[in-house]
Nucleic acid binder design. Structure first.
Length: 971
RNA sequence: GCCGCGGUGGUGGAACUGGUAUACACGAGGGACUUAAAAUCCCUUGCUCUCGGGCAUGCGGGUUCGAUUCCCGCCCGCGGCACCA
């Protein structure tokens, strides 16, 4: 046997795969396709670090297995090469970004190749290649032609150190996401993509794909859909008071006939609380303030507030527990359409311009922010929702509606409260009971007497308002829809009557200390009222039952919303409305190293004219100087000969757009190009797209679960809508890998000097060991720390696999012992095949490898192993360690490797070990035949000496048998 | 604050649907081979005691014959969103 020499065999097989184009695929209609995708890397000057191979290896394992299962597997690779780091590096070294990119790609390619990935290298895409970005520009033009790209003057986030405009999502915690530098607001004309038009579609699409739950949740939150209503409030100045004031018949009957004053539109998700809207708030930027400045009596104060608000940065404005500030607009009022009441209008910066209409109706009783504001500024608070909880009433039981009184009895001497500990249910509560037609106080006193015997308590006050709850009462075996009221009493003296036995059986009365009440009481409504009593009034923001709200009184929140929306629509005071947090996508960058936007500005034609498709790609000019500018202009703007052009429509003089596209552009459709990478006529042929279809499995970083995924889904959906792509959702399945961290739990970075270089690891241990170790490190979706020692262990495992060659049987030698050995291995082998097969599909690579290690450890104990077992081992290991396995297969395999199927009959052992428990503790183990009957094993268990000792002569109460696992004896 | 994920030996981590907790690997200790070292192989390795056991899966309760797993209440760490009306 030759020594295991990774360097030699890895080189040999990498050359073989390249020479034979082993992994290049064609659209073979006879085979079922499988498209596996990794996020294509950004080719930085630093090269790959040891974290990069994690997702690549994982999907390589998946792809190699799928191939052995007979699929036609597309597993492509490419480079997302536009972007800042390269541009910055090029500026620093005085070179061309294109040239630097070429070098970096070459280096990445070399590094990827020595890791032995089964990429189809004939399909490489490079986003900076004009043959690629021609189509990125083409897609942009389609968006433009469909009205989804528009230019808008708006404040942008300008990073002072990168000298670049950032999308909202690139500003993290008020600083630049890439460099951590300060960000300021600047006004600039920006290209925007109307992704908000796709908000609903992007949300709905999530229901049709198999993404990790977290990705779905984060995207859903990002889209931020809320449903509710727009409500129109009239705004009047005090000198405009109309005759109709106070006259209910003056309510306008439709939108077409508003009153002679201004309309303030607000969005609310809680139209059911409209009767509780006691004031309005405008964002400082709201137009109405400026429009009504003549009417505002305290204009100078208001102006001062607005000026100050504008000065604040986003961070200051949203900063933590800052007190809510605001100024009332004196002299103007809004009219609540439901009750015609005049309510004050405020300006406050807790209302944001960017969401909804930049104005709100404030309902302090049922919104925490409004409550805080109203409390501070002494604005009226009006409750319109009573708390209500449906606490799993039983469908099959009757429901009784009842008024219920709860008595909170305090003993002022020692600050304790009278409580009940229920025996028939887990409830712990205050004395509570139904009102039998008597008044609240009498009813409460009666309940206290009946349930606890205390005769002398003094009424103090009523606490809170009504609370409703629907639940099951075990002691009465029925449901109750209860309407609770709460009264506070003080105990006068200890005089007490004997109570009924029936009451005694139901609960025990006890005195609980004030500070323990919160943890003692466990019924929802009383916990709530206790909080209200001890912490003072607070806002109730959950759903409930409408009160003090005329025509919706008594309705549950959902019904109340519906009824209110219908009423608003009927009367013309509002309409059903949906809002999204998602904003349009800022698509302009003022940098050189990006795709030029293929539009020209023609004065004669009155605006933006797209380049004809034949003129694409619009290439980046090769120039000496492409430094960013401080002015916010793109570097392209200073290249006169490029900027000045002729209008494709009228032939007159025109200027090119000088902004470039953001980095997200090229990566928003690359998976489509892979299907037909060299097509010069279209971005990808329909035929190829139909064959390869959706990406079957896409794995990428957690950091891309929101933006990249959303952007690419948007482009794909759009292309699908205009008939260019045959499927709506680009990715069928999406998974994410955890990061590989440096030792100590830090991110690997050049500046920290803790980067582990894969080249070095391959040099020392071989690519196979590195790959297998990366898969073995820990759960794939969790972050793990790099540990070179662990790599040593995996290398030892491969050494042992190699060494097993020595134990292969020589067919006719020692026939008897051989058969025995093979049988012993067979069970372990088939269990391993099963586990590895399942684990790869579920991305549990670590346990797949652990299982193969176990198998090898088993095999090491045998003097001889069969060649067929060895073949199976080599096959299932090959996705992880392809080179060594290819080498071994060349010597011991027959034909092509085919993924083995486990034989269910072979994983059944004839003897099993059954644990015997006594009172839940394992006391003995019995090895018995698999097909032992329940009676037999129970009998054997009870006969066991060790068990006997623990049973200690007692009669077993119960003996439980879990098939094939254990016997549990209860004494 | 809200949403999501996680907490198991000295370390990375296993554990099916509630069924023998600690697989696999690292590290450590001991031994074999060797003139010696490396490599390799074998054994031991959760804690603890009185060697029968007792205690251990972040903490405290609960359900169960039986809980890392289910329920309730906390603590800690990570990630996302963050005045979104």
């Amino acid at each position: 046997m030759q020594e295991y020499n990774p360097k030699k065999i890895e080189k040999k097989w990498q050359k073989y795969w390249e020479d034979n184009k082993t992994f290049e695929v064609t659209e073979d209609k006879k085979k079922e396709k499988f498209y596996s995708l990794i996020e294509f890397p950004y080719p930085s000057g630093e090269g790959l670090h040891v974290g990069h191979p994690r997702p690549f290896t994982a999907m390589d394992v998946v792809s190699r297995k799928k191939r052995m299962e007979g699929y036609n597997v597309l597993f492509p690779i490419g480079f997302d090469a536009f972007g800042l780091p390269t541009e910055n590096y090029a500026i620093k070294t005085g070179r061309q970004p294109a040239e630097v990119t070429k070098e970096n790609i070459a280096n990445f390619t070399r590094q990827l190749k020595i890791l032995g990935y089964s990429f189809d290298w004939s399909r490489v895409v490079d986003t900076t290649d004009p043959n690629y970005y021609k189509w990125t520009q083409w897609i942009f033009l389609q968006l433009f032609k469909h009205g989804l790209a528009y230019k808008k003057n708006q404040p942008i986030n300008w990073c002072l150190s990168c000298k670049i405009g950032l999308a909202n999502e690139e500003v993290v915690g008020g600083v630049c996401e890439r460099c951590g530098g300060p960000v300021e607001k600047r006004n600039k004309e920006q290209w925007m993509l109307a992704i908000t038009k796709y908000a609903e579609s992007l949300l709905q699409g999530l229901g049709t794909v198999d993404y990790i739950e977290r990705a779905k949740i984060e995207q859903t939150n990002w889209i931020g859909k809320s449903e509710g209503a727009s409500v129109f409030f009239s705004v009047i100045a005090s000198d405009e008071r109309s005759e109709e004031r106070g006259n209910p018949t003056g309510i306008p009957s439709s939108l077409e006939a508003p009153r002679n004053d201004r309309i303030l539109e607000v969005f609310t998700t809680r139209p059911d609380t409209l009767f509780g809207a006691t004031y309005m708030v405008l964002a400082p930027e709201h137009q109405l303030i400026e429009e009504m400045k003549e009417k505002i009596e305290n204009w100078s104060e208001v102006l001062k507030y607005i000026e100050e608000a504008k000065k604040k940065t986003d961070i200051d404005r949203t900063n933590d527990e800052k007190e809510k500030t605001g100024v009332e607009l004196k002299g103007i009022k809004a009219i609540n359409p439901v009750n015609n009441e005049e309510i004050p209008v405020w300006v406050a910066d807790y209302v944001l311009v960017g969401y909804g209409t930049g104005a709100i109706m404030a309902v302090p009783a049922h919104d925490e922010r409004d409550f805080e504001f109203a409390t501070k500024h002494k604005v009226n608070i009006k409750k319109v929702v009573a708390p209500y909880l449906k606490d799993s009433p039983r469908e099959d039981k009757e429901t009784e509606e009842r008024d219920v009184i709860t008595a909170i009895v305090k003993n002022p001497k020692d600050n304790t409260y009278l409580c009940l500990d229920w025996k028939t249910t887990p409830w712990k509560s205050f004395p509570t009971g139904g009102i039998e037609g008597d008044d609240l106080e009498t009813a409460a006193k009666r309940e206290v007497l009946e349930e606890t015997g205390y005769t002398n308590i003094k009424f103090i006050k009523q606490i809170g308002d009504s609370v409703f709850a629907e639940f099951y009462r075990p002691h009465k075996d029925s449901n109750v829809f209860a309407h609770f009221k709460y009264l506070l009493f003080e105990l006068q003296n200890d005089s007490k009557l004997e109570i009924d036995q029936k009451e005694k059986d139901q609960h025990e009365a006890l005195w609980v200390k004030e500070e323990e009440i919160d943890s003692f009481i466990n019924v929802w409504n009383q916990k709530l009222i206790w909080k209200c009593m001890t912490e003072g009034e607070c806002s109730y923001t959950d759903a409930g039952i409408a009160i003090n709200s005329e025509f919706i009184n008594g309705l549950k929140t959902e019904e109340a919303k519906e009824k209110m929306i219908n009423w608003l629509e009927e009367k013309g005071f509002g309409k059903r409305e949906t809002n999204y947090k998602l904003r349009d996508w800022v698509f302009s960058r003022q940098r050189y190293w990006g795709e030029p936007i293929p539009l020209v500005d023609c004065k004669k034609c009155g605006g933006w004219v797209p380049l004809p498709e034949e003129e694409l790609p619009l290439k980046l000019p090769e120039v000496e100087k492409y430094q960013p500018t401080d002015t916010g202009e793109s570097p392209l703007a200073s290249i006169e000969e490029w900027v000045n052009t002729t209008c494709p429509k009228c032939g007159g003089s025109a200027r090119r757009e000088t902004d470039t596209m953001p980095n997200w552009a090229g990566s928003s459709w690359y998976f489509l190009r892979y299907m037909d990478p060299n097509n010069g006529k279209v971005f990808a042929s329909k035929e190829n797209m139909k064959y390869w279809g959706q990406v079957d499995w896409y794995n990428g970083g957690m950091e891309h679960t929101v933006l990249h995924l959303l952007y690419s889904r948007f482009w794909n959906q759009f292309l699908c809508d205009i008939g260019e792509v045959p499927f709506k959702e680009p990715y069928k399945k999406r998974t994410s890998h955890g990061m590989i961290l440096a030792k100590g739990g830090e991110k690997m970075s050049k500046s920290k000097g803790n980067v582990v270089n894969p080249d070095e690891m391959v040099e020392k241990f071989g690519a196979d060991a590195l790959r297998a170790y990366i898969m073995f490190m820990g759960p794939f979706d969790q972050a793990v720390e790099w540990d070179t020692n662990g790599l040593v262990g995996v290398k030892r495992f491969l050494d042992r696999v190699w060494g097993l060659q020595e134990r292969l049987d020589e067919r006719n030698k020692k026939q008897e012992t051989r058969n025995k050995a093979i049988d012993a291995i067979d069970v372990a082998l088939h269990k391993t095949i099963k586990k590895v097969t399942e684990d790869i599909d579920a991305m549990r690579f670590n346990t797949a490898i652990a299982k193969m290690m176990e198998l090898v450890n088993e095999m090491m104990k045998e003097e001889e192993i069969s060649i067929t077992s060895y073949q199976s081992l080599v096959t299932i290991l090959s996705p992880f360690a392809p080179h060594i396995c290819a080498e071994l297969w060349e010597q011991y395999g027959e034909g092509d490797m085919v993924w083995p199927k486990y034989d269910p009959t072979k994983i059944v052992e004839d003897e099993i070990t059954i644990a015997i428990q006594v009172n839940g503790k394992v006391r003995d183990e019995l090895t018995v035949s698999v097909d032992i009957s329940e009676e037999e094993i129970k009998k054997l268990a009870l006969e066991s000496e060790k068990v006997d000792k623990w049973i200690d002569g007692k009669e077993p109460k119960k003996v439980i048998y879990v098939k094939g696992k254990l016997v549990s004896v209860v004494v």
